[in-house]
């Protein structure tokens, strides 16, 4: 049942021209950024060659690329999550799901995984771009994998938050603005807090992404993402089942 809902979500996404447009535009931005950092790397390569312990190509091109994508997705994921429940509610299709033999958990997880698959496909081009460098140089695949894992966990937390906010309203646009406000708010609070042990760092997903970005697999950060994601998924389930109580 979960895969059925996820597939429906994907099918609806891919029938919309705007999805293809966003996909194309994003790939262009990714590629452009990648080529720019590649150029920058080639420019400073002579100087790097003189250093004893110079950073490799993965550190100089890969990590910033992943960081840029993480920031970009923070703005973009709300545009995708807004529709998830709010639009079902507005188009009255929610009653089809609620009157079908499905549990609330299946509905929420179906939506979550549907969008996760879509976003994973969207960012799949990034490791491919970096791997194209393997033709001419040696890559740090550990760093690459840690970045990729961190990015997927980060996306999961964005989607869960956006999904929850989408269950709160009937208007997709309000869901988008709400999710964007929370995500940007968390990010701004994180970069504005100068103290090393500020609590703002603890609750900001982007901050927890940083250790993955440097190739550090910190179980604490992984647990943060899993907790963040499951808390918002649970809240979304709670809110959707309250739908039956409050109408």
């Amino acid at each position: 049942m979960i895969h059925l809902l996820a597939l429906r979500e994907l099918r609806s996404l891919f029938t919309m021209p705007s999805t293809w447009f966003i996909l194309a535009a994003l790939q262009f931005i990714f590629a452009w950024f990648f080529l720019n950092s590649l150029q920058a790397f080639l420019d400073i390569q002579p100087q790097l060659a003189q250093l004893a312990n110079a950073p490799g190509v993965t550190t100089i091109i890969g990590a910033p690329l992943f960081n840029m994508v993480a920031l970009l997705l923070m703005m973009l994921v709300p545009m995708f999550t807004m529709r998830l429940i709010a639009e079902e509610r507005r188009n009255q299709t929610l009653s089809l799901l609620l009157s079908s033999p499905l549990s609330i958990r299946q509905i929420i997880l179906g939506k979550f995984f549907g969008l996760m698959i879509f976003l994973s496909v969207m960012v799949a081009s990034i490791p491919l771009m970096i791997y194209s460098l393997a033709v001419g140089t040696h890559l740090d695949s550990g760093l690459l994998l840690s970045n990729l894992l961190g990015l997927l966990l980060l996306i999961a937390s964005y989607v869960a938050l956006g999904l929850y906010i989408s269950t709160l309203t009937t208007q997709p646009i309000i869901a988008a603005i709400g999710a964007l406000a929370v995500l940007v708010g968390l990010w701004l609070a994180d970069i504005a807090a100068t103290a090393e042990n500020s609590p703002w760092h603890l609750i900001s997903p982007l901050h927890h992404f940083q250790s993955f970005s440097t190739g550090l697999l910190d179980s604490g950060d992984a647990v943060f993402f899993l907790l963040f994601t499951s808390v918002f998924l649970l809240l979304a389930m709670k809110r959707l089942s309250n739908n039956r109580i409050y109408g």
Binding site: R8, T15, N91, Q92, T93, S95, L96, S99
Partner: peptide, 15 residues
């Protein structure tokens, strides 16, 4: 065991 048509048909217009 249930089939339901609400007041507004629950259609995914893009399918």
């Amino acid at each position: 065991h249930l089939g339901y048509l609400p007041e507004t048909p629950p259609l995914y217009r893009e399918l």
